[in-house]
Design a protein around this nucleic acid. Structure first.
Lengths: 225, 225
DNA sequence: TTTACTTATTAACCTTTTTTATACAAATAT
DNA sequence: ATATTTGTATAAAAAAGGTTAATAAGTAAA
């Protein structure tokens, strides 16, 4: 399992440097990208900057507690789907329940066995499959790593925004993506673009791959296939 | 949280009747449907029959162990997405790791706190939300995510207001929605539209899906089916 | 660094669809 | 029967999206 790179980023927030180091070491050797934070506020900043796939929060931290960090992040739309786990030495039921009800996905007691932690993390990732690197949809193929789209064996080269837009729509075929949703995920929340920008990109994709791969749902959004 | 029905089924397999009873009681009062099994083979049979959304497996059971049951189920495509949790008194790391690597989603040590168990179960269900976006009503199907309405397998495309109106009426079949209620929920409180607007939309829905799906209750409002 | 080229965005304008208003017919209740 | 409410056709208004071309911003090669 180890060695190869997973393309998945994990943020760990804990005020004990030892814990940070042990966990980092183990996650790195499993192939995860690791970001660390020493307190709650740093965790929020780094989460926003690195947009990790999974976040490990110590409950007791100076400044903001793990629970507070979790609620704040869960209120941001980009962290709605992020896996969040709590870590704590406080081994009591009500704390655990509070953590899970605050929006946490798992709750792990210290002392931690690195192997168990990794197993749990892997188990959580097993359920997430949207960011797969290679999509095969009917006669179309989308390779996120090589940035290549294939229709009936023929290769097409899309520009980056075109590609990301297509990949997003294709990640859930026949789901209608709202314009806001598209803007959030392809352009990010900070960037503001005019209201014809999406259309123009859609048009270019259609021009290259054919009109029928993306359908418009007027007043709502766009849908793949 | 308790009382209302969740429309979610949980299968519990354990050879200790006491455990079965305690967990059943707690899950039932949370609104879950509960199925029980006394051993591994029974668990497999009942899983296939009831197709539960979540399965709780005791590791040590006569006949087949929880791990064996898990592998067998995971090999069947219908249980690929099912949430599976293990329960055991064996509190050691390697067992836990084995459980998670066998395809389990969570691993809980006995003795169990029913409240913690429920919190964990709720946390797992929080990630699965497809059933809310999808309505199935007789021979009609309304998919809020895909914005598709289906009648007897045939797909219909409705405009946004038409869709929202239908989805509202269908959200509580046979409830009569007052005109004001409809205006509030579909148009919002600020917008003011003429008094024939609803009728016109109702007409268009009837035109597309047939006259009988929405009935008029004169002087009161409209009702689905 | 400059040049050539690609990509991203915007603005202007066009087309289509959706939504609403109007007018009148039909239905229903009192 | 009459007043009230709802149904229907039509058309206007509004909204949404499509298209094109121009411009800005990046990138890579010379």
């Amino acid at each position: 399992m180890a060695q190869e790179t997973k393309n998945r980023t994990i943020l760990i927030a804990d005020d004990e440097p030892d814990i940070l180091e042990i966990i980092s070491y183990n996650l790195l050797s499993e192939g995860y990208e690791v970001i660390t934070a020493k307190n709650g506020n740093e965790a929020i900043e780094k989460a926003n900057f690195y947009k990790p796939d999974l976040i490990i929060l110590d409950v007791m931290m100076p400044g903001k507690t793990g629970f507070e960090v979790c609620s704040i992040l869960r209120n941001q739309s980009i962290f709605q789907e992020t896996i969040i786990l709590f870590l704590t030495a406080l081994n009591d039921d009500s704390t655990e329940i509070k953590g899970l009800e605050t929006g946490g996905d798992d709750f792990i007691n210290k002392p931690i066995s690195p192997k168990v932690l990794i197993s749990r993390i892997n188990a959580h990732f097993r359920r997430i499959k949207d960011s797969e690197d290679f999509l095969e949809l009917g006669d179309m193929t989308i390779d996120r790593e090589k940035f290549i789209v294939t229709v009936k064996g023929e290769e097409f080269i899309l520009a980056r925004k075109e590609f990301e837009l297509l990949a997003l729509l294709a990640s859930k075929p026949s789901k209608v993506f709202l314009r806001n949703e598209i803007l959030d995920k392809v352009w990010g929340t900070e960037v503001i673009v005019g209201d014809r920008t999406i259309d123009v990109h859609i048009r270019k994709i259609r021009q290259k791959l054919g009109d029928d791969c993306i359908t418009t749902v007027k007043g709502v959004g766009y849908r793949f296939k």
